[in-house]
Simulated assay, not measured.
Amino acid sequence: MNDARALQIIGELVREHRLRLGHSQQDFALLAGLRTQTLRFFEKGHRWPGEEVRRKIEEGLGWRPGSITQFRDQGQTGPGLDAALKTLRSIVPASPPSTDVQP
């Protein structure tokens, strides 16, 4: 799996988990201390966030520190990200309708 695919899958994981928690992009960004655009770019697979932003996202989602980097690294060595996405989708109820505002 290449870096672009890993970014796309991790962005999807972040978005799905955020929605399951009941947060819009704007609400989550405010709670986590991020710019909404930064979160949007990451969720859409446009840009890897820096270490501080990754930490804030992980904390806001209740993920273990370093999870995003670990998912990315696994994506470079095998099917880890695809498997993580499939597992997450199979054990968690479907997300509510999106309340995200797209530019």
Rank of each mutant, 00 (worst) to 15 (best):
33 G>Y: 00
69 T>N: 11
39 L>N: 12
1 M>T: 10
24 S>I: 12
27 D>L: 14
69 T>D: 14
95 S>A: 15
31 L>C: 10
54 R>K: 08
92 V>Y: 02
21 L>D: 07
50 G>P: 03
9 I>L: 15
46 H>I: 12
76 Q>M: 06
87 T>A: 15
12 E>R: 05
53 V>S: 15
85 L>R: 14
32 A>Y: 01
38 T>A: 15
47 R>A: 12
55 R>F: 07
75 G>A: 09
78 G>N: 06
90 S>C: 09
11 G>A: 02
91 I>C: 01
10 I>Q: 07
89 R>D: 11
61 L>C: 05
64 R>Y: 07
3 D>T: 12
9 I>F: 07
82 D>T: 10
1 M>Y: 01
6 A>L: 08
93 P>F: 00
70 Q>E: 11
64 R>E: 15
41 F>I: 04
63 W>S: 05
94 A>K: 00
89 R>H: 07
55 R>H: 15
56 K>Q: 15
52 E>M: 04
9 I>K: 03
4 A>V: 03
40 R>Y: 15
74 Q>M: 12
29 A>H: 05
69 T>F: 04
14 V>F: 03
95 S>P: 01
41 F>E: 15
14 V>R: 06
61 L>W: 05
1 M>I: 08
33 G>F: 00
24 S>Y: 08
18 R>M: 06
90 S>N: 13
6 A>S: 14
43 E>P: 02
81 L>W: 02
100 D>V: 09
96 P>H: 10
6 A>E: 03
42 F>N: 01
90 S>T: 13
54 R>A: 12
94 A>E: 13
43 E>T: 06
45 G>R: 04
